[in-house]
Design a protein around this nucleic acid. Structure first.
Lengths: 151, 151
DNA sequence: ATTCTTGCAAACCCTTTGCAAGCTA
DNA sequence: TAGCTTGCAAAGGGTTTGCAAGAAT
């Protein structure tokens, strides 16, 4: 007598992912900005938009998305992790404005090479590297100069 | 009539710093290792050495030392800040072993230049950058290969 | 009906702060 | 003695987890 469970189900099968209002809402917010946003920040915006999504869910989703490689995660100086939808697929780094959070994706072949060379020279293998460039973007710099103090 | 406070005391005068058993103990631990260590880690080692130093004091000191530029502070992927006595004075980056924490200070003129160029190209000013190279050092790689599993 | 998803409540963990007692100079 | 330093206790802040109710398939 055959088992009742469908034969399509395999042992290591990835679980079926479901579409929910919360996931869609979070995705919309992520799509609507190209700056790195913290979980708390995203949560606040969701509430502002009238979307009722729990903070826990925001964390749950962000982790899932990050694990799946759908978003970039970056830990800031203050220890908060910030997330951002990643457009490009290839390896790249970020140029981030410390004032408005605006980010530009940049490439740096010479940096990749340098990292590999340096690591090799010291006998390190399985190398990864993090490179972030932080600065003040032109717009913010102008604003700051003109006396319109940021804070 | 002159004020009673000594005339040697100036308004913005830096406070007198005192030498204590705790400070010396922490300094000793920091000197005894050239890897980045977390506050908790340092605290544990102090206890292991039989030195009674409070966790709060470790944090207090590390912050003071860091503010004074006497030690380097680096926030890891896990959000913990790690500290390390910094030998060299000039700007440099770190090559860190993800297994044993061993670090090598490396320079990268090309990276500095790249960062400056990229930032300039996008109109960013007042630029800073963080570059960390993470890998597995030769010793650890060998140990892992030989089946002596790390965990 | 099944099982993934949600989100409240509470736990975690690192770090900071309040403050009274302790110690250095 | 003066006031920097210590460190217990407790608060803070971001993030994770337990788990029962809810929703998608």
């Amino acid at each position: 007598m055959p088992v009742t469970s469908p034969s399509t189900r395999q042992p290591g099968r990835a679980p079926h992912e479901r579409s929910t209002r919360q996931k869609r809402a979070l995705a919309a917010v992520l799509d609507g900005s190209d700056a790195f946003r913290s979980a708390q920040d995203l949560f606040t915006e969701l509430r502002a938009r009238g979307e009722n999504v729990g903070l826990t869910t925001v964390y749950n989703q962000l982790r899932a998305l990050s694990d799946a490689g759908a978003i970039d995660a970056l830990r800031g100086e203050d220890g908060e992790v910030r997330y951002r939808r990643c457009d490009t697929d290839h390896h790249h780094h970020h140029l981030v404005c410390r004032v408005c959070g605006r980010t530009v994706e940049v490439e740096g072949p010479e940096v990749e090479e340098w990292a590999a060379t340096v690591a090799f020279a010291h006998g390190f293998v399985d190398v990864a590297h993090t490179v972030e460039v932080l600065g003040t973007c032109d717009g913010c710099a102008k604003r700051l100069r003109s006396g319109t103090v940021g804070r």
